[in-house]
Nucleic acid binder design. Structure first.
Lengths: 190, 190
DNA sequence: AGACGTTGTCAACGCTGTTGACAACTCGGG
DNA sequence: CCCGAGTTGTCAACAGCGTTGACAACGTCT
């Protein structure tokens, strides 16, 4: 029986990984539009058609290879006191460059509805779901969503606009200033 | 003598405007990648080649037609007290949908260095330059830049992620919560 | 009338994502 | 052993993209 869907069912796991690795690297380096399927295929030592055979489409390839993998459980589960600062520290200090690369690539590719949905789901899962039920006071969920918005803003400044006055500022200053600003949303009681 | 640069020197102002209007509309609707030069040309009732003749390249067309035009002087020049809230109110209330469309289009097109530079320059001009010298206390410029980052975050949430819990929240709540969080950065004295 | 600069079109180039046809290879059953 | 079947991969082609060089249509000035 022939495969109905466009993605090839099984395939060689090795080739699939090779394509995936090349794709992740090139998407991060050149962005969605800048990384052509043919370039990815060449980097993986394979024909461009095969890339599509394995992943269905360029968009599918992007969605499967470029994913936000952040885990902030340790921070979001910790004490509310000082959570804002620890959030910023965790983002800027613990995370590898890859987090920024991924944010940049996904935001720029958010023309695609499916990429946008992934981005929303990731923010929801990483920040809003763990944070909202822990906030005391009114409008807890809205406040959690606004915390997520603030994190977006920090990621924009660092990963997309690449504001040097921010990227070159001391980590301590950023943690203190931006963290306390986030904390204002967390602590709010009214 | 023939024109050296790729952009045609004079040209008919009427056609130029027609192309510009069509471009702005399509870029806002479909984004940079989604709006093809041929589609823009068709909407302007003109050949695709002419679009390039007039604007040099698709990127040049984008830069000339999609520009952030926000003026926040009235807010940034106003009293520091309550400035955070007034900033959020001005963004969400006074600005037309076009501001969000432009933010979305430019951020998604920020693969291009020149688009990125424009975005940085716009944020700098609209917020950092007027705000930084007015802030009292230490690290004034960094704080102004972080205020700009927070604004990016709000624009992301509203214009790109289109978080419905935020877009559908009451203006008063957003102004109060996010505005006070921004105010924390403005008021900081240490 | 004829030369000239301007305004616009047409066909083509090399690139893109994607697909259908086909080759090379592995493997189980007679 | 060998043959058919299934898997893994390539090739050539398609339509659409941004861009360019050659060329047509047109008004204007001498």
């Amino acid at each position: 029986m022939s495969t109905v869907t466009s993605t090839r069912s099984g395939g060689s796991a090795a080739t699939r990984q090779a394509i995936g690795r090349a794709a992740r690297r090139l998407f991060h380096e050149a962005g969605y539009a800048g990384a052509s399927v043919r370039a990815i295929a060449a980097a993986a030592g394979v024909d461009a058609a095969l890339v599509i055979r394995y992943f269905g489409s360029k968009e599918g390839l992007f969605l499967e290879t470029v994913a936000i993998r952040g885990r902030f459980d340790d921070v979001t589960n910790g004490p509310l006191e000082g959570l804002g600062r620890r959030l910023v520290a965790s983002l800027l200090q613990d995370r590898p460059q890859q987090t920024f690369d991924t944010w940049r690539a996904m935001l720029r590719a958010s023309d695609s509805d499916r990429v946008r949905e992934r981005l929303i789901a990731a923010m929801e899962e990483m920040f809003i779901v763990p944070l909202a039920p822990r906030l005391t006071g009114t409008r807890a969920e809205l406040r959690a969503r606004l915390v997520a918005a603030q994190i977006s803003g920090l990621l924009d400044a660092v990963a997309i606009l690449a504001d040097r006055r921010i990227t070159e500022a001391s980590l301590a200053d950023l943690v203190e200033l931006y963290g306390d600003s986030i904390q204002a949303l967390i602590d709010r009681t009214d």
